[in-house]
Structure formats: C-alpha cells, structure tokens
C-alpha cells in the first residue's frame, strides 16, 4: 500500500487553503481540504485518507468522518473514472431528465448508483445543481453539461472513452 501524502503541488494548495483563516481556526479549511484530498487520492475518501486529513488539520478523525458523511459531493466508496451526476429535480424533470437518466442507464448497462464493470462510468442521480434554465443537465468533473439530448449523451460517452484511451 502506498503511503497517503500530498505531493509538492498538492501540499502547496493545502498550505494556501489553511492560510485563509485566523490563527487557530484551521478546522475551517476542512471542506476545501477534503475536496483536495478526494481529487488527489483517486476520487474518493477512504478512511485512511480521512485520517490523514484529520492529522494534517490537527483535529479528531471523527470530526472529519461526520463532515464527509454529511455532504453529497464526497464519495465514500470508489467511483468510475467518469462520474455522470444527472439532475432529477422538478425543473429538470419538466424538461425530460427522466428520459435522459433512463437512456444513460440503458446505454451503459447500469442503474443509478452503479459503476460499469470496466470501472469507466458511474451513474448518479443528484438533486438540483442550479442549471434549471439549461435542463436537462449533468455534472461531469468540474463542469456542467447542459441542454442534454440522447445525441449529446452519445457524444459525451464517446468523448470520455476517447480521453481514457488517449491517457492510457
């Protein structure tokens, strides 16, 4: 097992995050530091990673666990290389998000909450992401993909496969 430790670039970002609060209030950096840890260590927060974060912020591990389990953006189990987070709340539903979710599931052979066997895609349904005027939509990594149609979904899946192949 590799040791959990921020590399130099991640460490610099960690220091930047912690410096934004008054002396003694470093716990305030917990949410941003968990984002950093999740991005740095494989897209999810294992208990080892959470313990590392607790250690770095000089707080108790339980303080990290209770936060990590509260917020939906922290993944507590491994996810696929590409995470499709499709909004299903009212305004997206009015514009056909049910059909989009069903289509993605059919196309990838998985249900919401599942990951494809090759570990490439995870499908997740989420609640309102603040893109109601551009519905249906999903979050993919840092960005939103909006005005989704079946054709657009096909293109996005293709794009992910191409990117994955190029990075191998």
């Amino acid at each position: 097992m590799t040791m959990i430790r921020f590399n130099d670039k991640q460490e610099a970002e960690f220091q930047r995050l912690v410096s934004r609060y008054p002396e003694g209030k470093q716990k305030s950096a917990l949410l941003p530091v968990l984002h950093l840890a999740q991005d740095s260590f494989g897209g999810w927060l294992s208990s080892e990673v959470m313990d590392y974060v607790a250690d770095r912020l000089s707080i108790k591990p339980i303080e990290v666990y209770e936060v990590a389990t509260f917020y939906t953006m922290y993944n507590l189990k491994p996810i696929g290389k590409y995470l499709f987070e499709v909004c299903q709340t009212g305004p997206c539903m009015l514009r056909g998000s049910d059909d989009i979710i069903a289509y993605i599931g059919e196309k990838l052979g998985i249900k919401p909450g599942q990951t494809t066997e090759d570990g490439m895609f995870t499908l997740k349904t989420v609640e309102c992401l603040g893109a109601c005027g551009y519905a249906p939509m999903m979050q993919l990594g840092k960005f939103y993909r909006e005005h989704l149609t079946k054709e657009k979904v096909d293109q996005i899946i293709e794009e992910c496969r191409r990117n994955a192949a190029a990075n191998n």
Binding site: K27, S28, A29, L31, E63, E66
Partner: peptide
C-alpha cells in the same frame, strides 16, 4: 482580505447559520 470557500453539496448550507457552521468546517 477576501476569500472564496467551496461547499460540498448541501442545500441546507444556504440557511445562514448552517452556512456559518459549514464555513467553520462542520456539518451544515
């Protein structure tokens, strides 16, 4: 000094005291 703090997916943090809790690194 002005800083941006990212939440992590919780509607309740739009309620001002939950937002403050979250900004302190706690559950919302």
């Amino acid at each position: 000094e002005l800083y941006v703090q990212r939440g992590a997916g919780a509607y309740i943090c739009g309620e001002e005291t939950a937002l403050i809790e979250s900004l302190e690194g706690k559950r919302g």
